[in-house]
Structures are given as C-alpha cells and as structure tokens.
Simulated scan of single mutants.
Amino acid sequence: MRKTTRTHLVLAAAVLAVSACGSGGPKAAEPVAAGAPLAGRDSIVVAWCDRFAAQSTTAPDTKVHVVTVVAHSSADGTRLAERSAALPDGAAVEPLCGQPRRSTAAADRQLFDPGFGLVAGTVPGPNGSAPVATAFTLPGGRAAVAEPAEGRGPAFQAGTSVLWYEGADHKVVSRDLAAAGAGPQDHGTAPGQDFALVDGRPWLTRPVDTKADQVAAAPGGEVAAGSGLWRRTDPAASYDPQYVEPAALGPSGNGRTTLPGSETVPGCAPRLWTDPRTLLCVNNEQLLLLTFAADHSRLEGFTSLLPPERRFVDGAVLSPDGRSLAYLDGYGGTTFLYRIDLTPGAQPVRLGPVATSTAEEQSAGLPHLVAWQ
C-alpha cells in the first residue's frame, strides 16, 4: 500500500454561514477551509448518517444528524482515518440521512468534495422556508452556502469543489466553492424537483420510480439505468415532463416494454458501469454484471460474480484501474469489506470488518460504500 499523502486543500471561496436554528437567515462568515484529504490512494471510503443522534448546541430540545466517513486500506482493510460532524439544526444529507434506499456509486461520491472535507446537504431557510443548498465541513459541521437562496439536491461535480443544486423556479445552478468571489452559474431550467449530475452535465429526466440519486449513466452520458434503461434523448412521458418511460430490465409488472434479452435478469439495483456496455447491478445476494449490445438495444447476457452462499450485499465501488470491485456484506450482524477481481473465476477476498455506527439502534445509519481511491 502506498503511503497516504496529506496535501492541504484550502477552499478560498467567500461563503455565508447559516444560523444553527435556520430561523435567523444566513450570516456573513470567513471563507471555509478544508484540511488535508481524508486518505490517499489505495483507500476505500465508507460513510453513514446517524439520524437525530446528537444534541443540538443551540436548541436544548432538538436532536441533529451526525455524518461520519471512514477510510480503510484496500489491501488489508486496516482503518486509516475517520471524520465525523454533527450537522446544524434541521440539516440533512440525502441520501445518507434519508429513508434507506440503494443509491448509485456516483451519487454517493458526489456528496463529498475531493478530499472529504465537505459534504453537500441542505438547511432550512429563514423562518423555516424552502431549504438552502450548502456544504458542511468534516469535521466541524459548519454550514456554508454560496448565496442566501433556495436550493435542493446539492451535489459536487466529480473530482471538483463545484457544488450543483436546483434553485428557485427550478433553475439549475453551480458554484465553485474553491474560487474566491465566484458567482453562481446558471445552467437552465429543470422540469422537475431535482436532477442527476453526470460528468458535469445535469440529467433532467428519469423514470417516475427512480430517484435522482439512483440514476446510473453509462460512460458517454447518453444512456442511463435505474428502474429500467433509457436514453437522454427519449421523449418525456405524457403525464409529466420530468419523467420518461424506460425499457424494463427483467420481467415488467407495470406494463413497460422489456429490453430484449433481459427477461430472465434477477431483480437488482444499478450501481455503476464498469465500461460503456457493462452495468453492475446489486441485490441482497449478488453482484450481477449485465452486458449490453454496443447500441444498448438489447441485453447480450449477465454474469453472477459471487459464489452461492448466504449474504447481505450492500453497495459496491470500482477500483481506480477498473479491474476489481469492493463491496460490503452485512450478513450476520457484522459488516465486512470484500474485494473481487473482474476476471473469470475470481473469488471474493474478505479484507476485514468496516467501521459502522455505534449509535443507538433507532438512530444508527446504514453504511454506504462511497469510493475506492
């Protein structure tokens, strides 16, 4: 394992701190500075949110969410570094702090800036008005916003300090938190309440039963998977311009057309693409590789990566060289980190237990496998 590099990253943006109770409106603040990266190369990052797990520092009868990120060695699972922050009153980080659901690897990673010094989230606006999109420091939990304005669905553009969100009147907005004096950039109008961010481009339409953080776009950004497969150029559904009608992957029970060749695919949630034609799909028991035709018009086949045994698979990330996967298995009460090479006949290797929440059961968050860096 290479030694962890600890290059200091400083965010020099002029930002605004949000009052902890969310009722006094934004207040001027000094620029937010992020310290050294959480960990360097050869590390795998797990994150979770403990809901209402800490006492508010400003309201005695209020509990707040706590976000934690932990880096483990990709070689042997050794715990390398940890950061945690109690969020301000009313603040949230989706999907970490929401109802449990399977989100994509890209969406989980885009909650954080490159060094895991900031996590994207929202706080209530003045007097409990519409939420304000912001980023919280890790550690510290200090909130910063680009402007005192409405904002939903904040996410960092991959590998950058550019925060995207949907502002008032469905405007798609971005702002570089590391560029001193940088103003918000307008990217047009979204037809709905949110959008998926793909390689610095907003993906504005999705199936009605797919959340924005469940959109997995193939390299090239023109085809996506969620509760089915669809193209960026597909026409909007007749009932709402933010939705499309995808081709189902597997048997369709809601009247959708099934993508040819996918009729026998087990139910699974898209997690990431290993290449432009291959989608990794996850369910509780398996990691599945779905291989499409070059034009994505049909499924040419699928492969189960894991040997048959009892398990509870939750999340997966691709190695930087694209040759291996890491995944979590929470069967039996302890969550373990595994890796498996993407070669025929490869067997999974248990790296060891991962850090998970120590909060009380009603508050404890589920771990999300965020990155392999």
Rank of each mutant, 00 (worst) to 15 (best):
A182D: 09
A106P: 01
A107T: 01
S103Y: 13
E147D: 13
A105W: 07
V67S: 10
R79N: 04
V69S: 00
W164T: 10
T189K: 15
A158R: 12
E166M: 14
T78L: 00
D113H: 06
L197K: 02
T68V: 10
L80P: 03
T104D: 05
E82W: 01
A86I: 10
P139R: 14
L118V: 15
Q157V: 09
P131K: 11
R79Y: 00
G167Q: 04
A178T: 09
E147N: 12
W203S: 10
H170C: 11
L87M: 00
V93Y: 00
G181L: 00
P148Y: 04
R79W: 00
H187F: 00
F156C: 14
S129A: 15
V162H: 10
A91N: 03
S161Y: 12
A135H: 13
D89S: 05
A149C: 15
A182W: 03
A105C: 08
V70I: 01
V132N: 06
R79K: 15
D169N: 04
L87Y: 08
S73M: 01
A149D: 14
R102S: 15
P191C: 13
A120V: 09
A86C: 02
P154E: 10
G192V: 08
V67I: 11
G128F: 05
G159L: 09
D89M: 10
G140T: 06
G181H: 08
L96F: 03
P126K: 15
Q110S: 09
E166D: 03
V162E: 11
G140Q: 13
S103N: 08
A168K: 13
R142T: 14
Y165V: 01
V132Y: 11
P100L: 07
T137Y: 00
V132H: 04
A120H: 04
G183T: 04
A149I: 15
H72N: 03
L80N: 02
G128T: 10
L96M: 04
L197S: 02
V123L: 08
A71T: 04
R152Q: 15
G128S: 02
V172E: 07
T137M: 07
A180C: 05
L80W: 00
A178I: 12
D194H: 06
A75C: 00
F136K: 15
R201I: 09
A71L: 01
A85K: 03
R142Q: 13
A180R: 12
V162F: 11
Q157W: 04
V172G: 02
V132S: 06
A120Y: 01
V119H: 07
P184Q: 06
L111C: 05
P124L: 02
A71N: 04
A130M: 08
H72G: 06
A146G: 15
P154H: 06
A105D: 10
T104A: 12
T68W: 08
L138F: 09
A106Y: 08
